[in-house]
């Protein structure tokens, strides 16, 4: 059953990767990558136990924390970014100089 659980987690990771590639918005990609991170935590925990790694849980715990902080950081970055304005390209050709 450990093998089945690992396989299910791997399938989910592939599905999340497909969603990350398809998009369509940056938020969808971030959601998929957040899900991918959670699945990594589960994969470390289940696979680590299956392979008898020493102290696998510490790695899983650390990865869970990094995943959470990473998601929040990227979301802050999106919020801090100014929204693209429609008249932004026009700034390259100031109307006062080239089109008198």
């Amino acid at each position: 059953m450990l093998l089945a659980a690992v396989l299910a987690i791997l399938v989910t990771m592939v599905l999340a990767l497909i969603r990350a590639l398809l998009g369509p918005t940056a938020y969808d990609r971030m959601l998929a990558s957040n899900l991918f991170g959670t699945k990594t935590v589960l994969l470390i925990a289940v696979g680590g136990h299956a392979l008898d790694w020493p102290s696998f849980v510490d790695v899983a715990l650390l990865y869970a924390m990094i995943n959470f902080v990473g998601t929040l950081a990227v979301m802050r970055f999106f919020q801090a970014q100014p929204q693209p304005q429609p008249q932004a390209p026009a700034a390259e050709h100031p109307p006062g100089e080239e089109h008198p």
Binding site: A5, A8, T12, M13, L15, L31, K39
Partner: peptide, 25 residues
């Protein structure tokens, strides 16, 4: 493990099938 694995794949399928970002959450 069986229940968890099934729900895991369910979430992945939902992520692909649902129409917009908020439903995918």
């Amino acid at each position: 493990f069986i229940a968890g694995g099934f729900l895991c794949v369910t979430g992945g399928v939902g992520l692909l099938r649902f129409p917009d970002f908020f439903t995918r959450i």
